[in-house]
């Protein structure tokens, strides 16, 4: 009983907050609704018994990706009136994307109800009493090791690309040289003097 209540609660909250993401006028509010949607999606994962995926969803999407969104949205200070001005112009394109998505959903649903594709070839974790961290790890590092490492290489290339694109040498920038600062000793920087009265000292 409680799991049905939980399911409908999480599911309706995901849909409601996803709707609010596109309805909210303030982009910062949009990001906050997106975070709520992520959270409830994590709740749905928990109900499906995938607690590892649920925690990763919160750590990666809420803890890192959404923070990045929030950063960008807060600092850009977007002008909404200007954004809304293009609404009619982009309406046909948006409608086309929406129709394609809807058709795909319907086809997928119909195909799923029509009968099963033979999935015997796929590797699913055997149903045991072990935690799903161990099961995912076992599959990921044996059968799917090539895909796993390929994904890692793609991410590495993306990271290097982003660094190369944004890294530029600017002239006239004075950076901190930590090793020089650490090498500095008190006797290099200070001097103990005992000037006579009225004589003063040179600096």
């Amino acid at each position: 009983m409680i799991q049905y209540i939980a399911f409908w609660l999480f599911a309706s909250m995901v849909i409601a907050s996803a709707t609010m993401v596109i309805l909210a006028r303030n982009p910062v509010h949009s990001v906050m609704w997106l975070i709520l949607a992520f959270f409830n999606a994590a709740g749905l994962m928990l109900l499906a018994g995938a607690e590892f995926i649920a925690m990763l969803l919160v750590i990666v999407y809420v803890g890192a990706v959404a923070v990045l969104f929030l950063f960008v949205v807060m600092m850009l200070n977007i002008d909404f009136a200007e954004l809304r001005a293009g609404f009619v112009r982009y309406l046909p394109l948006g409608a086309l994307v929406a129709i394609i998505l809807a058709v795909e959903l319907i086809v997928a649903g119909a195909a799923w109800s029509a009968g099963k594709v033979d999935l015997a070839a796929r590797a699913a974790p055997a149903v045991t009493d072990r935690s799903n961290i161990q099961q995912i790890g076992e599959l990921l590092y044996t059968r799917y090791i090539f895909l796993f490492e390929a994904a890692g290489i793609v991410l590495l290339v993306a990271m290097i690309g982003a660094i190369v694109l944004t890294h530029r040498q600017r002239g006239g920038v004075r950076t901190q040289n930590i090793s020089l600062q650490n090498q500095r000793r008190p006797q290099d920087a200070t001097r103990l003097v005992d000037p006579g009265v009225g004589q003063g000292m040179e600096l």
Binding site: M32, E51, M55, I59, V62, G63, A64, L70, S131
Partner: peptide, 25 residues
């Protein structure tokens, strides 16, 4: 007593940053 306790702590502590960002903004 959940079997992803440490991940739960990581997940929750990554939320702490929202209180700070939101208050600042």
């Amino acid at each position: 007593d959940i079997n992803v306790g440490l991940l739960y702590i990581l997940a929750i502590s990554s939320l702490g940053v929202y209180g700070v960002i939101l208050s600042g903004w």
